[in-house]
Design a protein around this nucleic acid. Structure first.
Lengths: 221, 221
DNA sequence: GTCATATTCAAACACCTGTTTAAAACAAGG
DNA sequence: CCTTGTTTTAAACAGGTGTTTGAATATGAC
């Protein structure tokens, strides 16, 4: 491995760790370079800017996750029987595959997305869509076939709610897990958290449409 | 109104607006004081520190919201027939009541909470619990009576997922609404967003327990 | 009006941020 | 070996942050 590749790698490793812990904006380049045991200026040398570093960090995960997700979705579609829960379960494997990138990769990736969506308003979304829009749209189409009676609009909202649920849960996962450990004497809450999450999300996505909405529509502006 | 009360008020108004737009950490005291047309040092004079200002801003909303929520919950309990959807609907009125505090108060309050939960890790949660823990616990108890078969643990996780759904949705509401307007020619998506959200959340909370979880348990981790 | 208190104000403080510079160290091909 | 190009380094840059200071100004009670 060349020296250049080595420092880039060290920077990426340190950055993804710190970013996932504290968010992008709250993490300084000096923290990253100190943690990576590397000169401050090398971030700008190798990645151009902090923004470039953020993109590089996220992209490395996207390039593993998105193709894996795409494959899972295709597999599900081919085998017929497309259900909301089935689609949601398609995300589990690709997330687990992120362990290749680094230990705890799934957790890191989701936290990165969470911070990316709330901090760098829109940037990450746009970047993801133009790079992996086809995968996202494929997933959306499958959700539509699983819930054929739903208006496109309803599904749009619910899927974004679901995204929000997962990302927020992941960002505050550590705090929640600690509370769960203290309050319920659950020795290993993180093990099933993702499954709990997906069950909740699947139910929310495929909730009966409109009845609840239409009965109270007039009351609320 | 004394001069002191006037400047505090101006600071609070400007702060809540900017905080809800950009988050706590991304908003500087200089932005706030310029927007409030007030001297920089007056923030520290009146609120001690930036942290003090954040607390003051949030507290003003909590003191309106929490008692209103408490009343709604009592009302629901007294009239019997406690359902998940019913409890969730209890939040609508108290949120609307925040318009008293200022225009768009509900939106601002939820965004403040959203940023508070993801930025000042734990601080806001602790503060809320020690000040309004009784209301939170009352809500939790009602959710338990609405879903008597659920393990306390299950409800704990789902309610926090629900909180995350609502807060994340609110923080990214503006972006979502713009997309909805562009993609679906919906002239007024914000009108029903909260109802869409609550329907999703209620379904997620009262999803059938464990069947989904237990069938896939062995596969994960 | 006077006095004590409460509030405002401009300036400075100490520290942190991302980025740039120019010299130094290193690498590899001729 | 020397030269060319790449990479590392320490230092400085320009600008932003929350907070403190001490003098100036208002305020309100006697």
């Amino acid at each position: 491995m060349s020296k250049a590749a080595k420092t880039s790698e060290q920077i990426l490793r340190a950055a993804e760790k710190l970013f996932s812990e504290k968010g992008f904006e709250a993490t300084s380049l000096r923290e990253i370079t100190q943690s990576a045991d590397v000169n401050l200026a090398s971030v700008n040398y190798h990645f151009g800017s902090k923004k470039g570093l953020i993109q590089a960090v996220v992209e490395r995960y996207q390039r593993v996750f998105m193709p894996a997700l795409s494959a899972e979705l295709k597999r599900l579609e081919d085998q017929g029987n497309v259900s909301t829960e089935g689609i949601v379960q398609c995300f589990v494997g690709p997330l687990a595959a992120l362990e290749q990138v680094c230990a705890g990769g799934a957790e890191i990736y989701l936290k990165l997305l969470g911070y990316g969506y709330s901090e760098i308003q829109g940037h990450l979304r746009k970047f993801t869509m133009q790079r992996f829009g086809d995968v996202v749209q494929h997933a959306f189409r499958l959700f539509q076939t699983a819930n054929p009676s739903f208006a496109t609009e309803t599904l749009f909202w619910r899927l974004h709610f679901a995204l929000g649920t997962v990302l927020f849960a992941q960002v505050s996962a550590r705090a929640l897990i600690e509370i769960a450990k203290a309050d319920f004497a659950d020795p290993n809450p993180e093990a099933y958290m993702m499954q709990r999450l997906l069950a909740y999300v699947a139910a929310g996505i495929s909730a009966p449409e409109a009845t609840f909405l239409s009965t109270t529509r007039s009351k609320v502006v």
